[in-house]
């Protein structure tokens, strides 16, 4: 299984990568904005994506919509600081499978990913 981590914060990308290292992903790729995420999505065809929302170039909700249109079956966990209900609902409408509110911990990341697959 391949993982794509998308976040404009380097420290969050690195924290997510550390948190998910033991999940058995054969490849982990990272992108710092939506446009780069779409490029890497097409090249590497990840099975799982963690997606920030507020990013330069292209926002995460647009990415979720484009990714789920391009390929069904990809699991997308939105990881965002946006704490309103509307954003979480919108993320699911666009095709996200889960929503994790920042601030994150290693435990909350791992739990959210497990829940993603349980569904």
């Amino acid at each position: 299984m391949k993982l794509l981590i998308v976040d404009d914060s380097n420290i969050i990308r690195r924290a997510l990568e550390r948190s998910l290292q033991d999940f058995g992903f054969t490849e982990i790729h990272t992108a710092q904005n939506g446009r780069q995420a779409m490029d890497l999505f097409e090249i590497h065809q990840p099975d799982v994506v963690t997606m920030d929302i507020t990013m330069p170039e292209m926002d995460g909700l647009t990415c979720v919509q484009l990714m789920t249109r391009q390929r069904t079956g990809v699991k997308i966990l939105v990881v965002s600081a946006l704490g309103d209900r509307h954003t979480a609902v919108e993320a699911v409408k666009q095709g996200a499978d889960g929503f994790l509110l920042k601030p994150i911990t290693a435990e909350s990341v791992r739990t959210s990913l497990i829940e993603l697959f349980e569904e």
């Binding site: 380097n10 507020t54 600081a81 946006l82 309103d84 209900r85 920042k102």
Partner: peptide
């Protein structure tokens, strides 16, 4: 520097729980 940016982003974004989706935050 990145960490400080992330703290600002998280606090501001979390505020939307009460401020609503019309409370738009920049990067």
């Amino acid at each position: 520097a990145d960490m400080v940016g992330e703290v600002a982003n998280t606090i501001s974004g979390n505020a939307r729980e009460r401020m609503g989706a019309g409370f738009m935050i920049s990067v």
